[in-house]
Simulated assay, not measured.
Amino acid sequence: MQRRQMLKVLGASAVSLGVAGGARAQAYPSQTIKLMIAFPAGGPTDLTMRVLAENASKILGQTVVIENKPGAGGTLPAQALQSAQPDGYTLAQIPLGVFRLPYTTKINWDPVKDVTYVLCVTGYAFGVVVPTASPLKDWKDFVAYAKANPGQLTYGSTGMLTSPHLTMEEIAQKLDLKLNHIPYRGSSHLMQAILGGEIMSAADSTGFAPHVAAGKMRVLNTWGDKRLPTFPDVPTLKELGLDIVQASPYGIGAPKGMDPKLVKTIHDAFKQAMEMPNHREALAKFDQNLIYMDSAQYSRFAAETFKKEKALVEKLGLAKPS
């Protein structure tokens, strides 16, 4: 009898240890985490997000690997979330273009309801650049040429319906200009195009900064609320009489239906990662600042931006036929 009781006790202990061991084995994270970003390698998003991912890897104790998914106006990572499990191992950058998607193309998911918004990280600093040899010496020259040559002034952007594209179209509408838009798959491709003489100008985030510093490009304007520290002599759109400010905040999203405790774990790790000095320094190279929103704030931002982008897309005449 005593032997049977002892075997039962030992068996129960083994089961309980197995359960505990299994729980420990499944503790998040227990494997590599994939963070998809919406633009190609080598651009500002890629360079800064890689620093963020490295920081988060150290905090979480598992590798956070970057997967570049450029194209479709920066919306491919968010679309990929729709078929991913809400287990914390698939994350995505959510650019502003995601909130325009249903108004410009047919999709079977909702950018507000079908993404778990973890936290907002930063936003872009944008501007318009031309090659140094261009006869367009300033924004006044740009506008004058566009008016005198309707449809002839080419500008490149990081893709159809991205913030650079829509902002340039808004500028053109306000100034009654007809510009020729040439979309590219990201900042690195766009910079190659303007340096290679394929286009006359480019609307981009400050991935152009190294080329300006090297004397290859000239900045005609920037799009922030204030002048950028790197380009203190370059006027903002507001200073040029255009009531437009564009920062295009972006952050990290996950598949819908994620456990709130898991969301908090990921949020806390990436918040710590984004505030580390090396990430702040990486952003500063492109005149980007932290734009932190927690999960609740970022979710509200998503819902509000979704409504605002509808109005902008319709105003510019870019909405899909009903």
Rank of each mutant, 00 (worst) to 15 (best):
S201F: 04
A202T: 06
A202D: 05
A202N: 05
A203Q: 13
A203G: 09
S205K: 04
S205R: 04
T206F: 15
G207F: 06
F208M: 10
F208R: 02
A209P: 00
A209G: 01
P210K: 13
P210A: 13
H211V: 03
H211M: 13
A213E: 13
A214M: 09
A214Q: 11
A214G: 01
K216F: 06
K216L: 14
R218F: 00
R218W: 03
L220N: 04
N221G: 05
N221L: 14
N221Y: 12
T222Q: 15
T222Y: 11
W223A: 03
W223D: 06
D225G: 08
D225F: 12
D225I: 12
K226R: 14
K226Y: 12
K226D: 14
K226T: 15
R227V: 11
L228W: 12
L228C: 08
L228E: 07
P229M: 03
P229L: 02
P229A: 00
D233H: 10
D233F: 04
V234N: 05
V234R: 05
P235C: 06
P235Y: 04
T236M: 09
L237K: 11
K238F: 05
E239I: 10
G241D: 03
G241K: 10
L242H: 08
L242C: 07
D243L: 13
D243F: 11
I244K: 01
I244A: 00
V245Q: 11
Q246A: 02
A247C: 00
A247E: 08
S248Q: 00
S248H: 02
G251K: 01
I252Q: 06
I252N: 07
I252R: 06
G253L: 02
A254S: 15
A254V: 14
A254E: 15
P255W: 00
P255L: 01
K256T: 12
G257F: 01
M258G: 05
M258T: 07
M258A: 07
D259S: 00
D259W: 06
P260V: 12
P260F: 13
P260D: 06
K261M: 08
L262E: 10
V263A: 01
V263S: 01
I266W: 03
I266Y: 01
H267M: 09
H267V: 02
H267A: 06
H267T: 06
H267R: 08
A269V: 10
F270V: 00
F270M: 00
K271R: 12
Q272D: 13
A273R: 00
M274I: 08
E275Y: 06
N278C: 01
N278P: 02
N278Q: 13
N278L: 09
R280F: 11
E281A: 15
A282M: 09
L283M: 15
A284R: 11
D287F: 11
Q288D: 08
N289L: 15
N289D: 15
L290M: 14
L290W: 04
L290N: 14
Y292D: 05
Y292L: 13
M293T: 02
D294W: 02
A296V: 13
A296S: 13
A296C: 01
Q297K: 11
Q297P: 02
Q297C: 05
Y298C: 07
S299W: 00
F301A: 07
F301C: 07
A302R: 01
A303P: 03
A303W: 01
A303Q: 10
E304S: 02
E304Q: 08
T305L: 12
F306C: 02
K307H: 03
